[in-house]
Amino acid sequence: MKYLALIYSAQDAGPQPNTPEFGQLMGGYQAAGKKYAEDGVMLAGEALQPVETATSIRIRDGKAELMDGPFAETKEQLGGFYLFECDTLDDAIKYAKMIPTAEYGTVEVRPIMTFD
């Protein structure tokens, strides 16, 4: 099965860029990425630009409305994701736990829908 791990955190939470802690955080991501590659479970994984760069789109009455900003104004924002290929939810959770942001943010694991 495929699972998407969505990584959420508040912008002011956790290590900030240009601090030694931030270096550790990045190291954590590298270590996780290495493990994912070894176990062959990662189909994709990306970090996103901050929410200020987001554009939200709605089409109403055939007309596209664009909004400057994210869909939901919440404190914890989507910052990145991994797409895993795992046999069970337990395995997906095992790999999601290795995402360093889980230490101060939240990682949501969702199965990918299959259409038969």
Partner: peptide, 14 residues
């Protein structure tokens, strides 16, 4: 069913 919660006896530390 949809999230793949396993039907098995967990092993090791789990």
């Amino acid at each position: 069913s949809k999230a793949g919660i396993p039907f098995e006896i967990p092993d090791g530390e789990a």
